[in-house]
Design a protein around this nucleic acid. Structure first.
Lengths: 235, 235
DNA sequence: ATCGGAATGTGATGTACATCACAACCAAAA
DNA sequence: TTTTGGTTGTGATGTACATCACATTCCGAT
């Protein structure tokens, strides 16, 4: 698993990472379990150290909207900070076993108060994170389901893409259904759209992993040529 | 204009407001002009003191997606903080003349660094703001166009609603087109949906202002009975 | 190798919503 | 008052996408 990602990632700065570390204890997480569920009162947030955590939201009629897939060094549960008696807005389900660092909310708030540098970096992280989310929803809302899928593919590529001879491999097995959950659409629609792209030679799929041959085509379809890829990720 | 809003608002705390004030100069803004436009390099952010500023985004084919309408004490342009060489993601167009306080980005960052209390409160504001946006997009994506409209109505009510004898008046003239822009839909669809609601006695319209007679009906349709209204606003 | 469950693929049909077209209704200006 | 430009209202039609139904492929467990 060489770090041959095609684009720079906006991760936690070293300092932020180090400082957060000092306040934490660790917890192993097992595939299929929840880190937290929507509506639970939030007392802590988490930093993924290994494994994968998916953030999602269930609609009243049982459909799932996936929002993020978080791997190493991603912060989870951040939305509840600074509001007393906050409830988690989303679910965090472990999709690959691993370890998270547990950070007590109040303790973090105290640390942020005491350490201006930490506070500033944390604000920067929040701000970046906010921008990512905003642009993602914009694609979803402005460019229909195709926009949603293409946006998801671009983000997946930026987060998990690894250069190969014939394109960029999204190094994460994905079913049609899982992609559909990110797009608020159905597996059938995703299937048809992917087959169209396949027919055009834009991408190919093998062993439920997607290889993108022509990322620019996808990016141009949703007018994201100009956007800085740093904000365009799935984490 | 008595402050008979039906629900508590999450505005800037007094301290935050005061501290921000010290760094600012004022600028009058005229209806129809832009505070900033998408893609411009961002050097400052703004606090609305009077008048109204609409935040929107134009799609490549000319459709408009409205995101916020900001009045007194709302922060505008906040998304560009902490990222050097940031470009504005959206447009800010003045829809009602007034005055804004101008805050230099670098100066604010310095102030936040020097004053932990300010930093903490600012983070709280960002976090609240983030939650609002997330929940709004969720309605938009999960519950279709009807969900988008109902969500917009609830938010408008929370932000501009004033109790009257026969319901809650949204004290802001709104055309079908303007509502449509908030929902990423067409004026015709909005018109039909509003007429349905009118026929059911849920709301009524006069002089392009909406009065909601049965807010609970609308809220129940998009499953937001449980949500705290503080986060459910249009600002 | 073979069985069974999950994932994929693809037609037929339904439905929500956009688009088009145009009539009716204002309210402010001439 | 009449004109005019913006807004509302509403049918007819088109299109994107969801839903349903079922066949096929894939893959791990026995």
């Amino acid at each position: 698993m060489t770090p041959t990602s095609t684009r720079p990632k906006s991760t936690l700065s070293v300092e932020l990472n180090e400082l957060l570390k000092s306040a934490e204890h660790f917890m192993t997480i097992k595939k299929g379990t929840f880190l937290f569920q929507e509506g639970m009162t939030a007392k802590e947030l988490y930093i993924v150290r290994s494994g994968r955590v998916k953030i999602n939201k269930l609609s009243s009629d049982g459909r799932e909207l996936s929002l993020r897939i978080c791997t190493k060094d991603e912060i989870v549960g951040e939305l509840t900070l600074f509001s007393e008696d906050a409830k988690y807005l989303f679910n965090a389900v472990v999709v690959e076993s691993g370890v998270v660092a547990v950070i007590n909310k109040e303790e973090l708030e105290r640390k942020l108060f005491e350490n201006s540098k930490l506070a500033l970096e944390f604000m920067k992280w929040m701000s970046d994170h906010f921008r990512k989310t905003q642009t993602k929803f914009r694609d979803l809302v402005l460019y229909g389901k195709k926009g949603a899928l293409y946006s998801t593919l671009v983000r997946m590529t930026n987060s998990y893409g690894r250069k190969t001879e014939d394109g960029i491999l999204i190094d994460l097995p994905l079913t049609n259904q899982e992609l559909a959950n990110f797009c608020a659409t159905t597996r059938e629609s995703v299937n048809r759209m992917l087959n169209d792209l396949r027919a055009k030679g834009i991408l190919s799929i093998s062993k439920s992993k997607i290889t993108i041959h022509d990322l620019n085509y996808i990016r141009s379809e949703i007018n994201c040529e100009g956007c800085s890829a740093v904000f365009c990720s799935i984490e």
